[in-house]
Design a protein around this nucleic acid. Sequence first.
RNA 1: GCGGGCGUGGCGGAACUGGUAGACGCGCCGGACUUAGAAUCCGGUGACGCAAGUCUUGGGGGUUCGAGUCCCUCCGCCCGCACCA
Length: 887
Amino acid sequence: MTAESAQSRYNPRDAESRWQAEWDDRGIFRTPADALTKPSAPGQPAPKKYYVLEMFPYPSGRIHMGHVRNYTMGDVVARFMRARGHAVLHPMGWDAFGMPAENAAIERKVHPKAWTYDNIAAMKKQLQSMGLSLDWSREVATCDPAYYKHQQRMFLDFMREGLVEREQRKVNWDPVDMTVLANEQVIDGRGWRSGATVEQREMAQWVFKITRYSQELLEALDTLERWPEKVRLMQKNWIGRSEGLLVRFALDPKTAPAGESELEIFTTRHDTLFGAKFMAIAPDHPLAQSAAKKDAKLAAFIAECKRMGTAQAEIDTAEKMGYDTGIRALHPFDASWQLPVYVANFILMDYGTGAIFGCPAHDQRDLDFVNKYGLGNVPVVCPPGQDAASFVITDTAFDGDGLMINSHFLDGMTIEAAKEEVAKRLETATRGNAPVGARQVNYRLRDWGISRQRYWGCPIPVIHCEACGVVPVPAKDLPVVLPEDVTFDKPGNPLDRHPSWKNVTCPQCGKGARRETDTMDTFVDSSWYFARFTDPWNADAPTTRETVDAWLPVDQYIGGIEHAILHLLYSRFFTRAMKATGHAGLDEPFAGLFTQGMVVHETYQKPNGEWVTPAEVTLDEAGGARTAKLAATGEPIKIGGIEKMSKSKKNTIDPDDIMGTYGADVARWFMLSDSPPERDVEWTERGVQGSARFTQRLWRLVGEMADIAEQAPAARPDSFSEPALALRKAAHGALAKITEAIEKLHFNVAVAHLYELANALGSAIARPAGTPDFAWAVKEAADTLVKLFNPMMPHLAEECWTVLGRRTLVATEPWPVLEPALLQEDTITLPVQINGKKRADVTVSRDAKNPEIEAAVLNLDAVRKALEGKSPKKVIVVPQRIVNVVA
RNA sequence: GCGGGCGUGGCGGAACUGGUAGACGCGCCGGACUUAGAAUCCGGUGACGCAAGUCUUGGGGGUUCGAGUCCCUCCGCCCGCACCA
């Protein structure tokens, strides 16, 4: 490479670290504590706030491409909004508690704390090399006692408010490791480390009363206009409001266990009561428990059910199994009609009353069940157009609309009317002084179990005293700090077997007591970090009311779709709980939500099936066919499917490698190109190279434009020649489109318009007019170009800004101002369709009236030819859009 | 199983509120420059057809002057399911 060509190339390695240092030295991304109260200029009002937040990462050790994509998007928004004059808050922190740290401790004998902080240091360095406009002065780590002490305080405040309770919950128990397992640690019913068969076990757990807000969380979804519709729908289904009926079935005394006389069920299909074939109760239903006392086989069946994990998907897909208890329930409308009571593995104690009546004809699970146990079915809803007498159900339940049949007094009614009639009759019928039926609104949402029997989490600040019961840790004793001298060589929770930590005196009676050894679910940590960022310096309280209320809600929250339900719903609850306890003044934490897609990559395999990393593979695309071989040996490699980047398939790309080779700007640019941000993006070497070429092209283009711009007069010319005007139109057209695209977070569209602008400017300066007005237009266009790509490629933009002779930082420059007059054309060209197919164009003046347009269209050769002298049936003129002639 | 989503050239994708399908990029083909390569620049590129033209947004059907977009149905792929974060 000659000295000359070295000079003409942009060198990201040199430029990026230089500009990062410059930004840092000037502190331009720090949001001062008084940002929202201090006037932006003397006499001016304080700027409007804009809070942009990306989901903070778990410090796993290295950032991955998903992070690069997520944080690039947030950074584009942050830089864009700053340029538009907002006071921007754009912080970063660490979701630092969690199981991987404990796994590392067990597997590699490193302390969770040391492992976590090493990872944070490494990842912070990586994030900093991306050139993100973050305010690092607000950095928080959830494992820092300075953070979790406030969380413990809020736990106690919630407790006082009645938002915390103890509840018996089922967990996955590993009898060998003596520990509770996460669903992901249960593989085919066995513990991942021990291989022991996992069983369900009831344990007392701390829960947050999220169900108190079920209705509110549901209704408020309608107000979240800047959330994706699909996320709102998923939350709505998760909350699962249903209106139904509680029905008390009497039990045949001859068959019922001593002391049991009735079975209460919840149903939303009370219209199908005459199609009932059986009753089913959960294995842990009290009636099942009491029946099992005298029935060893039933007890064994219940024990068998407990050998199933607690994951919903597993419960639903397991084979439907039941056990006839011998108990008979009496139909509420016909006491002579007896229904067998089964214990069934697919009935959940957590939902409704833990008991149902089965109507097989109209529920697939019930139908599968009766078909297995030979109980038969009777259809009671007949689809429209179907003959009631011949309507039979065999393998497929009918859950559609129709009219009631085989249902006595309900026959001929709609489902809705039948529900109403049944509810009315059962509400007024009484047994033992109480109504047989009662309408009830039920929610699928369960209270949030936050107890974890693990070390690396926020300690739950309560003390168990034999005399006083559960006693909150007094505020003065917070934080309850995790002890550091713990070992991971034995099974179970290190906190539980720590020699001294859990032994304390009761704050109330002073006698010996025991600390709670459960720690909090890490979702608690991430349910309020966005609030903490508004004043992370407050050592006395979780938030500073004035500040948190000024900054929240987050204007734009960006993260993965995998958090669509749990993290976002818990945060919505937590914000309400903070409001109830005076820590914040609003209900909804995130005004705008964006969920990004994954980063995916091709997979590669040796003939023996062994996965190979992209770095080890050489690709060849000569002759249109793509083949691959192992770079080291030339061994042929099979090119596999495009899948989510994962360690197991070895199809990961290390962001450090990319940034080292091409620079951060190229990585950022490519992450935004091509794929719409909500969809998956495929990482390809070719694509990255294309991005890298474009950075060089921009660099050359700006350099050439700078040469012309030097001739520009200081004052704006009064008039512009044709080439200058064309240039200005291109620049302002791009400005309008790119502004709109970024506002809508359509980054790939913004990127496409930047390519177009670069193409247009390249062509324009290839034929320079050589006049002062042209030079002025080139200068304007160059400024605009650099400002427009600055949010995506900020380092290159700073470097270009210098080339344009500027001394300021483009990072602190305002967004270009649009001149709308430049976008107005005097004439418009409308496509002309004949019978819906495009056949010609017609050019008319911008404000031509429909009759004029129609006349011009009918005069076109193509139209005359198509009409063959006849008059058209119809001419449709859509203003500013299209003309359609119906022949 | 339940819930949610996605499907457009060789590839990633664009297309406002039902109005010119294929913007932009990648790849490929041809050309220029070069001793050669890299880089760069110019032109072409949905399919079929010599052409006029016809067909084309996962398959099938429908509504409409007009459908990638709305409705029905089928197929394929992906995500979440309460202790991964």
